[in-house]
Design a protein around this nucleic acid. Structure first.
Length: 483
RNA sequence: GGGCUGCUAGCUCAGUAGGUAGAGCAACGCCCUUUUAAGGCGUGGGUCACAAGUUCGAAUCUUGUGCAGCUCACCA
C-alpha cells in the first residue's frame, strides 16, 4: 500500500526521495519554550509524523523531531485545496517539512498552523502502535532506530551518555591531560585478566588480537614523558554477556606521573561527581529506587577491614598461606576459589572472602583499598607489606566501576610478576596476563612514579541514567543473528 | 554453560477437558474545520518462531532446534 503510494508519487514527478534538503529554522522544544515570542511568527520545522488525526476539512499531525513533538494544524484554507487533499494521503511514519505560523488551539496546545508542507521521505514500513509503543526487548535492541523513534526515554539516555563522556573529557582536558589513541589491534593483548578476540591481518599474514585494555600502551606514553594521558574508547573481551557485560564496551584509562593511588581516589570521586552534575544536575541520583550520592569524599575501606566488618573474619591475624587455607575450609570458601585450595595464597583467599561477604553491601560509592599482590601484577607493593599493593577499586550498588593503582615501575619486579602470570597460564588460567616484553623494556628506560585508573564508562552511564542493563546504554548491543 | 519464562496480525496482548484463530491500535473505504489514545459506520489482514512426534484432528500435548529476557555460574 505504501509502496503503491510511493510509486504514484514518483509517477507524478514528486518523488520524496529526490529531495535533497529542507531548511529547518526551529525545533519543537524551542518553539514550546519561546511560545510568547514566536506566537504568530513563521517557523520551519521538520520531523516524523507520529500521529495523523483527520477530522474532515482539517487535520492534526504530531510531528516528532530531535527534541520532542509539536502539533501541526492543517486545513484547506492554509494550504489550498489541492495540497490539502494530497497531504491527506501521507502516512504515520513519513518524514515531512512544515512551514507555518505558531499559534495555540482552543484546548491550549501550542501548534503550527501549516502554510506549506513537503513530504521529505516516504516511510514504507508502518511504525509500532502509538499507545503501547514498542516493548519487545529483542526488537528494541536489534532495531534500535525503532526504539529511538518510539521511546523518548531512550533518546534521553543516549543524549545523557554524550553529556557524561563530554564531561569526563572536559574534566581531564582542563587538568592538562592529553588524550591519545592507542592500538586496538596488536600482537599481544595484555593489561587485564581476560580472553581476547582473535583476528588476522591478510597483508602481514599475522594473527592479531583486539585490545582488552589500554594500560601498557598508556604507560609507555608516561615513559615517553607525556605526564598525564588518557584513552577513552572500546575494549573487547571474549566473555559472556549479561546485564552488566557486553563484549565490546567503553573504558577510560588515565595515567598521571608523580601521583599515587590516593591522588587517583580524589580524581575518581571528583570527576564522577562532576559528570553526574553535568548530566543530571545533581551528584545525588536515583538508581533502581535507591538514592546514590556521588558527593565526595566517598567512603574508604581496606579490603581486610571490609571482610572484618561484613564477614567477621580478621585477616590481619592470618600470617601464612596455610593458616588462610585452614580458615577458608572452616568458612566454606572453597566454592569461591578458582584454583585448588592448596594452590591458594592468603591473598586469593582474602579476595574470595571479600567477594563473598563484603561486595554485596557496597551500595553507596565506596573505595576498597589494598589488594593482594597475587591478583595485582601491574601494581606497586605497599611500603612495608609486600603481600599487599597500593590498589583500589570503586564500588557502587555492589558493582565495580573503577580500578586504580600506584603503578609498578620497577622493571625487574614487573618481569617477575609477568613470569608468575605465565606460570598461572600454564596451570590452566587462560585469563592470566600475557607477558609484554617491550613494555618491560620501556620500564627499563624509566617510568616515573605514576598513578593510573580505569573506569567502565558504560557502567557509570548506567548509574546516571537509571539503566538496569548495560544494553540500555549501548546503542547497538552485541546480539546473535536471528535468521 | 545450568535453571526459569517468552515467541499468536505491523504493534500491544487474549486464546488448554486438543475440534476450522480473537480484541484494541495500525491499515483500507466513507462521514466530520481546533482534535490530541479524536469520534462514527464499514472492510481486509495470520506458515500461531522452526522441525519432528502423539492424535481422526495440535497455537494448545511430547521431544528437539533457534532467538530473546530474567537468574545462577563464569567474568571485572
Amino acid at each position: 500500500m505504501r509502496r503503491e503510494k510511493l510509486a504514484k508519487l514518483q509517477a507524478e514527478g514528486r518523488d520524496p526521495f529526490a529531495i535533497v534538503t529542507w531548511k529547518q529554522t526551529h525545533h519543537s522544544k524551542e518553539i514550546k519554550e519561546n511560545f510568547e515570542a514566536l506566537e504568530n511568527k513563521d517557523v520551519s520545522v521538520a520531523g516524523r509524523v507520529m500521529s495523523f488525526r483527520d477530522i474532515g476539512k482539517a487535520a492534526f499531525i504530531d510531528l516528532q523531531d530531535r527534541d520532542g513533538r509539536i502539533q501541526v494544524y492543517l486545513n484547506a484554507e492554509g494550504l489550498g485545496d489541492e495540497a490539502y487533499a494530497h497531504i491527506k494521503t501521507w502516512d504515520v511514519g513519513d518524514i515531512i517539512g512544515v512551514e507555518g505560523y505558531v499559534f495555540k488551539t482552543r484546548r491550549g496546545e501550542m501548534s503550527i498552523h501549516a502554510e506549506k508542507m513537503v513530504l521529505l521521505t516516504k516511510a514504507l514500513e508502518p511504525l509500532p502502535e502509538k499507545f503501547h509503543g514498542l516493548k519487545d526487548p529483542e526488537i528494541r535492541y536489534r532495531r534500535r532506530y525503532l526504539d529511538l523513534v518510539m521511546n523518548p526515554q531512550v533518546m534521553d539516555t543516549f543524549r545523557k551518555r554524550t553529556l557524561i563522556i563530554k564531561a569526563i573529557r572536559e574534566y581531564l582536558d582542563s587538568r592538562e591531560y592529553i588524550e591519545v589513541d592507542t592500538p586496538i589491534l596488536s600482537t599481544i593483548a595484555s593489561g587485564a585478566a581476560a580472553r581476547p578476540f582473535v583476528t588476522k591481518s591478510n597483508a602481514l599474514n599475522l594473527q592479531l588480537y583486539l585490545r582488552i585494555a589500554t594500560e601498557l600502551y598508556l604507560k609507555r606514553c608516561i615513559v615517553g614523558g607525556m605526564e598525564r594521558v588518557y584513552d577513552m574508547g572500546k575494549n573487547f573481551r571474549n566473555e559472556g554477556i549479561d546485564s552488566s557485560h557486553n563484549p565490546e564496551f567503553t573504558m577510560i584509562e588515565l595515567y598521571q606521573a608523580y601521583a599515587d593511588y590516593n591522588d587517583m581516589m580524589e580524581l575518581c570521586e571528583n570527576m564522577i561527581a562532576f559528570a553526574a552534575e553535568k548530566a543530571t544536575g545533581s551528584a545525588k541520583v536515583m538508581y533502581q529506587g535507591t538514592q546514590i550520592d556521588f558527593t565526595p569524599p566517598w567512603r574508604r575501606l581496606t579490603m581486610t577491614d571490609s571482610v572484618k566488618e561484613y564477614g567477621g573474619i580478621d585477616f590481619s591475624a592470618v600470617k601464612t598461606d596455610a593458616e588462610a587455607q585452614a580458615l577458608a575450609k572452616e568458612k566454606g570458601l572453597e566454592h569461591e576459589l578458582k584454583k585448588k585450595l592448596k594452590d591458594c595464597t592468603k591473598g586469593d583467599i582474602l579476595n574470595a572472602a571479600f567477594e563473598k561477604y563484603a561486595e554485596e553491601h557496597l551500595i553507596q560509592p565506596t573505595f576498597i583499598l589494598d589488594y593482594p599482590t597475587d591478583i595485582s601484577p601491574l601494581t606497586k607493593q605497599k611500603p612495608g607489606d609486600p603481600t599487599m599493593t597500593e590498589r583500589f577499586e570503586a564500588f557502587v550498588y555492589a558493582r565495580e566501576i573503577a580500578n586504580a593503582y600506584s603503578e609498578l615501575n620497577d622493571p625487574i619486579v614487573q618481569l617477575d610478576r609477568f613470569l608468575q602470570q605465565e606460570r598461572e597460564k600454564e596451570l590452566g588460567d587462560d585469563e592470566a596476563y600475557t607477558l609484554d616484553e617491550d613494555f618491560v623494556s620501556s620500564l627499563e628506560v624509566g617510568m616515573p612514579p605514576t598513578g593510573g585508573m580505569g573506569i567502565g564508562i558504560d557502567r557509570i552511564i548506567m548509574f546516571l541514567t537509571d539503566a538496569y542493563s548495560i544494553r540500555d546504554v549501548i546503542l547497538f548491543p552485541t546480539m546473535k543473528p536471528n535468521n
